[in-house]
């Protein structure tokens, strides 16, 4: 019995490893057609589901070098626009029903993901720090317990609620204040910020609370003000935890789907202004998975793989940082 349980326990623990590896391999496999077709160019290509003609001789003669063929196609199009002489040929070819192919690039959702996350952090960080300072150092104990408990509960609210509220109540106000569309990078980022706010505030407060009373008292006993105690003793003491809380929040914001899905606009276009609509990786997955097929589907998996790797990198970095500091 002992042996059997131990084996079972070992297998369950190993399951974690297998699932993570499985996610990576599965996503990679499913993304492989897109990876083969577009390579790393995918990351910098803003086109999504765009028909481009296959006109270059290289593409016809040398099909194995598909990646260079794609970039050559781009070059060709630019050339066509630059030199009027060739444009006739181009027109001809178009009318001739030249074979076209659909290309997919991940730049737009990648930019949308990164910028909505950055906006969320920029918005949430100062407020979360303020809440944490208020709860840990300013508020009387009873208020701190009550408000702290409320904030922890708010961190548990399903993210889709934040999205709905954001779309129908918050976005109109943001659009009125800053101009632009109600669905935009800005509104999506801000709602994302509101969503990570309670989480970030709660764990920042927890880190600040690990500072021993006696250490704070020592600083007060030297004549320090509350702000000086926070700045010189509490923050340095709980630095690792606070940075960790920010990185964990960043990880949450990166992968968040529902709070953003209502608000980002879901169009594959690079935003020129912060108030323009665009799309993020999770939203691209959520909205297009159902209808996609073939290379489009594979490209979505490519996006999922990129998101997975990004989140993995961010969290491992945080873990590594914790580990190094803890030792």
């Amino acid at each position: 019995m002992e042996k059997i349980f131990q084996k079972f326990a070992f297998s369950s623990a190993t399951l974690v490893f297998i699932i993570l590896l499985g996610i990576f391999i599965t996503l990679f496999n499913a993304a492989r057609p897109a990876i083969n077709e577009f390579g790393l160019n995918f990351i910098v290509d803003p086109a999504w589901n765009k028909e481009v003609p296959i006109t270059t001789p290289q593409a016809k003669t040398d099909k194995s070098v598909t990646q260079s063929a794609v970039s050559n196609t781009d070059d060709e199009t630019v050339d066509v626009n630059d030199f009027g002489d060739d444009s006739d040929d181009m027109m001809m070819q178009d009318e001739d029903d030249t074979p076209t192919k659909t290309i997919y690039g991940g730049l737009v959702p990648l930019v949308g993901t990164i910028f909505s996350t950055l906006i969320a952090l920029a918005f949430a960080m100062p407020i979360a720090m303020g809440i944490a300072i208020f709860l840990a150092e300013i508020a009387p104990k009873k208020i701190a317990t009550f408000v702290g408990g409320a904030i922890e509960l708010l961190a548990a609210i399903p993210s889709i609620i934040f999205g709905m509220w954001g779309l129908y109540y918050f976005a109109p106000i943001v659009a009125a204040l800053f101009g632009g569309f109600q669905v935009s990078l800005l509104t999506a980022g801000l709602v994302l910020g509101v969503m990570i706010l309670p989480f970030m505030a709660a764990i920042t407060r927890d880190s600040m609370n690990t500072t021993p009373d006696i250490l704070k008292e020592s600083a007060y006993a030297l004549g320090a003000t509350k702000f000086e105690v926070i700045k010189d003793v509490i923050f340095p003491y709980s630095k690792v935890g606070i940075i960790g809380s920010i990185i964990l929040s960043l990880g949450r914001a990166l992968g968040e789907t529902m709070a953003v899905a209502f608000l980002i606009g879901s169009i594959f276009e690079l935003p020129h202004k912060i108030t323009d609509p665009t799309i993020s990786i999770p939203v691209a997955l959520a909205n297009n998975f159902g209808e996609a097929s073939g290379l489009g589907m594979s490209s979505l998996f490519y996006l999922a793989l990129i998101l997975f790797v990004m989140s993995f990198a961010v969290i491992s970095f945080a873990k590594f940082y914790f580990l190094r500091k803890a030792n």
Partner: peptide, 8 residues
């Protein structure tokens, strides 16, 4: 205090 309290 009872315990040493060096600041970080």
């Amino acid at each position: 205090f009872q315990k040493p309290t060096p600041f970080p």
